[in-house]
Amino acid sequence: MQQWHFHPVVRLLAQRIGLGLLTLWVISLLIFVGIQLLPGDLADAVLGQSATPETVAAFRHELKLDLPPHIRYLHWLSGAVEGDFGRSLANQRPVAELIGWRFGNSLFLAGVTALIAVPLAVVLGLMAALYRNTLFDKLISTSTLSVISFPEFFVAYILIALFSVQLPFFPSIASITPDMGLGQKLYAVFLPCLTLALVVTAHMMRQTRAAIINILASAYIEMANLKGLKRMRIVVLHAFPNALSPVINVIALNLAYLVVGVVIVEVVFVYPGLGQLLVDSVAKRDIPVVQASGLIFATTYVLLNLLADILSILCNPRLRSPR
């Protein structure tokens, strides 16, 4: 009995995962081909006009530019899968080494932010939906509308002006080193976390509110009211199970957004994360690093989106137990 119940969900999940993998593959291809389209020869572009033919040849060999494109793509992709992204053009260090702890830092920043923002956004969104059209709801709606209209760096600078310049509580530069303890790290990332949390919470809260209001308008909620059930029971037992799927979707999408949102905040606070590395490398045209960090960002983003899809399929009662 369980088995034939399972069937369509498994098929749906397989479809989504397949599409996710396809997306990742296309992304790797786009990143690779994109870089190939660089106007002029990469070696000339990087080494400049003054380079001798020998250094150019050595450079081309180093980057395997003398091989045909499809071979290079396979090399690059198989290397990337094993975690080998070649060497940085700027300082000759292995890209993996450069990226490793920076990616960890970015995930730390995003992770701490998510821990604050997700519960806050879901609770506030739920409350705004339950107390719709009250002063509380209007206040929250207006303030979140303002926050999502602000550029992230605006929020960041306001916070710096307030908590770092006017009241010198927190550092305006979030520099962390590998040997710092958790407490020190948390102190260092306080302002960037707060910035991200404000922006993400605003988005997530609005979407949560909308999702729950949508559910509360359903006929079966009216029926629950007419059965004389208590308000709390209606919300927890009747609205929540149906709201789970859309709300989880909202959370995962915002986490994906968060991963990308770190780029700007990292630049503002000079935080040694992957985002800052990407921006620097784009400016320096350090191609292997750009490729690698782009691929990592894109993969994280795609995986989170995939997770959103999978979770919302699993949470949908209609899909879970088909006819």
Binding site: A219, E222, M223, N225, L226, K227, G228, P241, P317
Partner: peptide
């Protein structure tokens, strides 16, 4: 107090059962 009466002493049957049953239970 109305809640104590609703469902217990006065009940309601709607036009669309499909929409009025909670799909999750």
């Amino acid at each position: 107090q109305l809640r104590n009466l609703r469902g217990a002493r006065i009940a309601y049957v709607a036009q669309s059962a499909a929409a009025n049953f909670n799909p999750a239970h």
